[in-house]
Design a protein around this nucleic acid. Structure first.
Length: 569
RNA sequence: GGCGGUGUAGCUCAGGGGUUAGAGCAGUGGCUUCAUAAGCCACGUGUCGGGGGUUCAAAUCCCUCCACCGCUACCA
């Protein structure tokens, strides 16, 4: 049994997150973590906001609020979204507030420098005197040096598609203020990625199992690797250690250098809060830890090359990622999610009208695991109505209501002579069932959702075959035994449901009259003949209430209309 | 431009060199009535994007073409 250190990409604290982020990097991690816990594994789930970088300074200045206030606002807003989705981290922090973050980041810089993995280079860059900052390529607009297009961005020309060098562009302007930037020389530190690759990172990557999208992308990247600058000229970020700055001032670590270190500093923060400040080493410096990063595909270069290179460069005993199950992108109703264009689903508003638990399930069932996928309101309705309500919710209802009406709301007895027959009936004769928890452990989320529903079908088939309503008059004892067996299956349904929809699972658990929690550690992985029943005959059941209310067509139509209306304004 | 992905039943997708290509949803017919007009059973259709090649055999491998999409790391 390994220790599992699970991370989700640190959300950038300059805007809200949407369903795409949730299903890309957070929900899968949460599902994986819950499945691990249910199997009794030791898990730590780490996340927090990424709060440095030039985009944040620009955003804050635009809003006329101090940087710390700006990031705090988004940090809290984003956290509320996670809370709404029942995504539960063991630690949630932020790179600008975590007390351990700056020192940890500087330690990385110091060690990598000491080991010769950093290079110092002087280059010319465009500098905006008005905004007093060096301009990243995307903050430059100007004339394309290839085709003469006048509104090219500094990194790429939208017209001819050429990759641009801002220093060669005949005419440029700062995208923020519109003024013409000047050339200015500056010094920066570069992470020597080719050297790290050649000294072992390349082998590490080659020897590892990866999702196909990750392998293809990184494999290419490793062939043509350049040293990468890891410092910037700005006042917001982790400062380059003074004693290593070679007399330079105003240098901070590049946001992508310090952001992944957040996983480590947040772990330290968590350890300290537990009263065991050294505990973090067990998670980051012990080969028994399995480190898994959940990210969207846009983060692949950083989590599969840059950050591993940094960890590798730190040397023993630091561990490297075990797996990076990157997802593709999630679209919305035929288009890309775009907060600025209004093509998005405001989470708080949505949660006021629809069920967060069912939403989790639908996001899992439509997750962009192997290719881009999308949220469609009609599909959400189908998942909720035809799968969750009809197959699973109604299953619980038909069993529990029957017992409520005819058996005083108690678990009937299963006479010894019927146990084997009924075990065989439901476990062997009503169709194949699978283990959703195992699928979640294997990070096959769509499959997990599918298997869960299939397991509900098995019990529906069982009930139809055994027809307890017919037995009611002819053989009440057998009727009770049939239903008690169905109840046992519902106990398993609640367990299987727990990672996907923890609150619904708990509700079902209580309807079954059970104390404790539906997500408690499972004593065995799957039901098996003669060894899967846990209920006590005569135990009082809870009150059956429909778990999944149907969603009306009109509600879906209204959402689609509202989405279109938002996009127009 | 480079790299990569996708293209399989009306829809969403799974599968992946070898018996008659699968699931769910939607549709049709039947059964049932415990249940959220729920459940169960049965049924249909597919040139597996086009073309070429390898092979005893390809949806599955190779080449090419077409369509759509993503990424292209000094913006997170």
């Amino acid at each position: 049994m390994a220790r599992h250190l699970v991370t989700s990409a640190l959300p950038y604290a300059n805007g809200p997150i949407h369903f795409g982020h949730v299903t890309g990097a957070y929900l899968p991690a949460d599902l994986h973590v819950r499945a691990l816990r249910q199997r009794g594994e030791e898990v730590l789930y780490v996340c927090g906001a990424d709060e440095h970088g030039v985009a944040i300074t620009i955003g804050a200045e635009k809003d006329k609020v101090p940087y710390p206030e700006y990031v705090a606002r988004w940090r809290d807003e984003i956290k509320q979204t996670f809370d709404a989705f029942d995504i539960r981290f063991d630690v949630w922090s932020g790179t600008s507030i975590c007390p351990e973050h700056a020192a940890t980041s500087q330690e990385f810089f110091r060690v990598l420098d000491g080991k010769g993995y950093l290079q110092v280079k002087q280059t010319e860059q465009l500098y905006c005197e008005h905004d007093r900052m060096f301009l990243a390529d995307r903050y430059i607009v100007g004339t394309c040096h290839e085709c003469g297009h006048e509104e090219a961005r500094g990194d790429e020309c939208p017209k001819c598609g050429q990759w641009l060098d801002p220093l060669r562009m005949p005419k440029t302007a700062c995208k923020v203020c519109g003024n013409a930037p000047v050339r200015r020389s500056t010094t920066h530190w570069y992470l020597d990625l080719p050297k790290l690759r050649d000294e072992g990172l390349g082998r590490w990557f080659a020897d590892h199992a990866w999702k196909p999208n990750v392998r293809a992308f990184v494999g290419n990247m490793l062939e043509d690797l350049q040293p990468r600058p890891i410092t910037r000229d700005m006042g917001w970020g982790v400062p380059v250690p003074v004693d290593l700055a070679r007399g330079e001032s105003g240098k901070v670590l590049y946001v992508w250098f310090d952001a992944p270190i957040g996983y480590i500093s947040f772990t330290k923060e968590w350890a300290r809060s537990q009263g065991r400040p050294d505990e973090w080493r067990r998670w980051w410096q012990d080969a028994g830890t399995r480190l898994v990063h959940f990210i969207g595909k846009d983060n692949i270069p950083f989590h599969c090359v840059v950050f591993p290179a940094m960890l590798f460069g730190m040397g023993e005993p630091w561990i490297l990622p075990t797996d990076v199950p990157a997802n593709e992108f999630y679209n919305l109703q035929g288009g890309k999610f775009s907060t600025s264009k209004g093509w998005t689903v405001p989470v708080a508003e949505f949660m006021g009208k629809f069920d967060a638990q069912a939403t989790r399930f639908h996001l899992a069932a439509s997750m962009p695991e192997n290719s881009d996928s999308e949220w469609r309101f009609e599909d959400f309705q189908t998942t909720n109505n035809s799968l969750l309500a009809d197959v699973v919710g109604n299953l619980a209802q038909r069993v529990l209501r029957f017992l409520e009406k005819n058996f005083d709301g108690r678990v009937p007895e299963v006479p010894a002579h019927l146990v084997e027959e009924l075990d065989r009936a439901i476990l062997e004769e009503c169709g194949a069932f699978g283990d959703p928890i195992e699928e979640l452990l294997q990070t096959r989320f769509r499959r997990a959702a599918e298997v869960f529903i299939q397991n509900g079908r098995v019990a529906n088939v069982y009930i139809d075959r055994l027809a307890p309503w017919a037995l009611k008059k002819t053989d009440p004892v057998r009727c009770g035994a049939v239903l008690a067996t169905a109840c046992e299956w519902l106990v398993w349904m609640a367990r299987w449901m727990a990672p996907f929809m923890p609150k619904k699972a708990q509700a079902l658990w209580e309807q079954l009259g059970l104390a404790g929690r539906a997500d408690e550690v499972m004593a065995q992985a799957m039901p098996s003949m003669g060894a899967w029943r846990t209920l006590t005959a005569g135990a009082k059941l809870g009150t059956p209430i429909g778990l999944f209310p149907k969603i009306e067509d009109a509600a879906i139509a209204a959402e689609i209309e509202a989405l279109k209306a938002r996009a127009r304004t």
